[in-house]
Design a binder for these strands. Structure first.
Lengths: 214, 214
DNA sequence: TAGATTGTTAATCGATTAACAATC
DNA sequence: TAGATTGTTAATCGATTAACAATC
């Protein structure tokens, strides 16, 4: 299997969610690329190619098995694992992310949550007690966390990211409104909410452009 | 000016944030496309094109004015306005978004926050009191809100979206983990956090692919 | 079988990058 | 002036879509 690019991954998530929601993860139903195409507004050739990449084979004259599609995607993305993650920043957003039960279903588990504000340390969020920043390295080592979720202010983001990388994390999910740098072996996803907002605001200002953005 | 596509918008936000953070919004400094190119890792031709699209002209032998770039982007995206938005869903994420002060700086203002849970109604979040859902239409009309932020459970998302559209909103920012449909004149942005997460998890599983995603 | 559907190759489209003349 | 930098046209690249033979 070739390495999947972000566009492919995004479409795969589309197939996954559609089936999970409308057919059910454990049901089985045959579905043709043409049907999915209409439902999701994605070219049917594209769908067949995407499914081929993750090893799902269809039957001519019949279609694809919904269960196989869901299974393959969960397998490829590792949704059945339980990967520990640490959240740094116990603000409202950090709290929201740390306690998202949905994430369990994607193979993620909140191992710990940190903050440097003494007022926040000791508070309980979800099923975690907020810990002081000086525990970061120890907890990461002991929990074998791989992923770090950053919900700290922009000015602190790079410094926190450096510490997380130093402590051995190889994936960072950054919600701070700034771009952070990391070594090549670390994958960083910038979940820059304001950038998404800007897109909507632009459409508000220019109602002519009718394309619905993702 | 042509209508900006999402990719262009995204790059523009990159220029904007870099300058805002590293030069300052009110400072002025000349900066060449080659310099920005190195800093942001974006082709310099691309940068000149992007700036041309929003009407920023550079000076040969000199470069671009940082202040002009920032000003043009703020103008094009309407960051100096104060557009009222309503938040539906007063959970942790809804609360986090409703009280993000950062958003003010992008021309957004939380006009109201709604929930259907009697326990939540009446609570104060940021500077808003959570209101019952039956007030939705009235408040939207009175506040002239244009944008709706959805942080409701997936199963309720479509129904809420329909009500918001019916009430006159023309832009929806959807944080529910499901795709919602809306008429053509409404722009919808799906801020599907789990889809972003999937990308990181995939990289954790396939560390070979070293590209840092955005 | 006939018709529907997959799988894959070829064509198209759009975005990115290279080249380079114009400018100061 | 010489050299740096913009602005724009042309070439390249990659992603999407169309075409169609293979399959059941």
């Amino acid at each position: 299997m070739n390495t999947l690019n972000p566009l492919t991954l995004n479409r795969l998530m589309g197939y996954y969610h559609y089936i999970d929601r409308h057919i059910g993860r454990d049901s089985d139903q045959t579905i043709s690329s043409a049907t999915l195409s209409k439902l999701l507004n994605i070219d049917d050739t594209q769908i067949r190619k995407d499914l081929a990449v993750i090893g799902v084979k269809g039957q001519p004259h019949v279609g694809f098995s919904s269960r196989e599609i869901v299974g393959a995607i969960r397998g490829v993305l590792g949704f059945d694992l339980s990967r520990p993650a640490v959240v740094v920043g116990a603000g409202r957003l950090g709290g929201a992310l740390a306690s998202f039960k949905d994430f369990h279903d994607y193979g993620l588990r909140t191992a710990a949550i940190f903050d440097n504000n003494p007022q926040k340390i000791g508070q309980t969020i979800g099923d975690q007690v907020v810990q002081p920043m000086d525990r970061l390295e120890t907890v990461i080592r002991d929990s074998q966390a791989q992923l770090g979720i950053l919900t700290v202010p922009a000015h602190a983001a790079q410094q926190v990211a450096d510490r997380l990388v130093q402590a051995g994390l190889t994936a960072l999910w950054n919600f701070a409104p700034t771009r952070i740098a990391a070594p090549d072996h670390v994958s960083v996803r910038h979940e820059h909410l304001a950038a998404g907002l800007a897109e909507l605001l632009y459409h508000l200002k220019n109602p002519l452009s009718t394309d619905a953005a993702t």
